[in-house]
Amino acid sequence: MIDKFVPDIAQALAGIQSGATIMIGGFGSVGQPNALIDGLVDLGITDLTIIANNAGAAFGGLPKLMEAGAVRKVVCSYPRSADSSTFVDLYRDGKIELDLIPQGTLAERIRAAGAGVPAFFTPTGAGTLLARGKESREINGRLCVLEEALFADIALIEAWEADRWGNLTFNGSGRNFNPIMAAAGRLTIVQTQHRVELGALNPAHVMTPGLYVNRVLHVPYGRPIR
């Protein structure tokens, strides 16, 4: 019997080590796996590279993880937040590295990793500061920049519903980066609001099939906070 549910946070995060590259789903605070991020803080590991769209809002554990000194580098498109200055303060003090990527290029590099595309050319960012050090080429008369697939050791995902095979659905704008990160992570760990029986999800409405998912933790926390 395939059963990807784990009983507690310790088993959900077992084996994550210092130096890992970790993708974290979410856009703003919606679709962000807060219980798993809080669990990371408690692991006491260091030297992490975090790949996420934002570098933490007031709620959720990412600022806490950064304050604990666990994060060496953040790979994201928008590290500033109206309600959290943690990243900006650490960055200004030279205590954290930033790899800034245009948001669509970030998403496409993550998608490419899950889809077996090693690299691709795009006009986004070509000729700008963010293309520095990257190969550029004119294709069909347009300047393009070569972008490589972005992998992670671990992907932390928040789902709305999950069954024991790891089939997932997402709610509202909580989908965002979660499906593509689930596919790009070598070990994909999910926290889900609802646990459903195998067969309960309409197969045509499954948004991430279970093959991308390794572990699922049931965390029925209610409403997202912000």
């Binding site: 590290p79 245009p102 669509g104």
Partner: peptide, 9 residues
Amino acid sequence: APAVGGAMD
């Protein structure tokens, strides 16, 4: 800290 979001896309 610089931030770009989706502007370049």
